[in-house]
Nucleic acid binder design. Sequence first.
DNA 1: CTGTTAGCGCGTTCAG
DNA 2: CTGAACGCGCTAACAG
Lengths: 328, 328
Amino acid sequence: MGTTIKDIAKLAGVSPATVSRVLSGQTDFYSEKTAKKVKQAVKKLGYQKNTSAVELVTQKSHVLAVIISTIQTNAADQIIDGIQETAMKNGLDVIILYAGEKNLDLQRRALETVIERTVMGILLVAIDLNTKNDALLRSANIPFLFLSIGFLKGRFPFISSDDFQVGYQATKYLMDKGHTKIGFAAADPETVIGQLRLAGYWKALSSNHVTPKLDWVYDGEFTYDDGISAMSYYEQHTDLTAAVASSDLAAIGMLNQAQKFGIRVPNDFAVISIDGTFLCTIMRPQITSVTQSFREMGVKGVETLLSQSIKQFKSLYTPIKITERQSS
Amino acid sequence: MGTTIKDIAKLAGVSPATVSRVLSGQTDFYSEKTAKKVKQAVKKLGYQKNTSAVELVTQKSHVLAVIISTIQTNAADQIIDGIQETAMKNGLDVIILYAGEKNLDLQRRALETVIERTVMGILLVAIDLNTKNDALLRSANIPFLFLSIGFLKGRFPFISSDDFQVGYQATKYLMDKGHTKIGFAAADPETVIGQLRLAGYWKALSSNHVTPKLDWVYDGEFTYDDGISAMSYYEQHTDLTAAVASSDLAAIGMLNQAQKFGIRVPNDFAVISIDGTFLCTIMRPQITSVTQSFREMGVKGVETLLSQSIKQFKSLYTPIKITERQSS
DNA sequence: CTGTTAGCGCGTTCAG
DNA sequence: CTGAACGCGCTAACAG
């Protein structure tokens, strides 16, 4: 779209190669004098380098791609924040693409647009990749890493919370508060995350000789509406005194529905949510949560991608902690 | 990084030119037979086109860049949603970059990474561009458009709400409810948006012969904490009975602080917020809002960029409406 | 320290 | 319908 190094070479009275040397920040390969001339010409012509050309010849890129599920989770903001900051520190630019959660085509498309551009790495945030796209991701030969989602049997390397522990600790916390009839609400049993958390929940109960009834577990997809439905169900069909909500939003749904039924939280019913985003603090009552280290996932994600040993990297759990607030 | 059209040309027993023709979707310029051979080879070799090379030679791109401020506004999700859907419909890929709100360098960097890649268009969402970057944006010669933010004197084309009307309607609504002592909280007077809304607020009051006192306006930056501060200030220093909050989050801050003071909403104090995101519906009481058409901004934004008449395009207001809920 | 040459992967003439 | 040759803008290798 315009001015090239040839143009500025002509204006500065040097060769294109020299211009290139000055502009690509090589040191000690040109004199101050010519550098100045070149820089003046650049300014005068409003030159912008053509990255397509650069990447074509260097086969390198300083762009980090982040593919993220469209799911409205405020956790993503924190992760991106961590990514952004760490990337910046390392001179990387970040581009973000949205892909559906389970939409095969959207995922493939996002992967393709990223792969076609030889980015230096791919971070997949909260994406449960359809297995049909596994090969595509692998074939690109670009370093990649999943964030905020785990896999079984080492299918892919990831950085996330230990979701078994998430489920376990949440439940354990409620039991320590004296509850035994504890629900598990709005998690998606078709996701690895949902399965692991459920297993943790189960383990915490059974370790303390509590056998959960089947209808204590109310499936969903981590949404606000699922929280509403769960609480409605519990109110009508169970005598639970507490529940683990699969996300902050689900917890909010439960609280609101509880209020509608005249159920007081935490007195009549205690809730602990999973995530611990700012939503927990702006609600009344504020919501007790298993708080995940989202920001750290982002930071560690970039660092791992950058490290030489990325190929040996297996997986990593970031810390979780219980943040006690007012809903329990 | 792998297999090129030469490789597949060899495997298919044709020339690279033919491969190119088949792959770039040209019709009627090759036989079915060769097309099949080529496609087989592509699959076998797991070929992915090199976009750098394509864009270098075609000087075109089907990528739409979205630059967005890091500010935590759930409005952005809606806008992006609209962009994404419309872009997809038109065969465009979308990449998103984050830039600080007022950070000169971050903005420049985001602009540069986008301009260097000859994207087909740039959408700037909720970015109040530092004037020093104006020239950079213009020089690129790439179609662009601002979303969710307006400008004075035609500095840049934009699509947003009419922020004067936003301020006016919000205030008018409260007056129609019988309030006369109305605050204006947590807007940033250094932004065009803040100024316009304030002017609308002022106009609504004065049209009805109410002269607002100076301390009815409590400045801020649209944040949750600003909402908290505003309500604290109002409680101590004023006898207001209602207020316009500059954002949903600010409104939530006000509500929570009101509760702390034992001020009942809406009985003792009415609040209307500006934005109308899902946050309004998950709070208790649910928050009455001036609801903006964020999704539509995204949709219209892409359509405008795509239209031939982009150069003549001036600006456009998307509709606003009052959504009455429980805080007023 | 600097200019010349070659070529990254692809689309597009121009001949056949 | 297909192949050969050229060039997009830039960097790298090789001479000077």
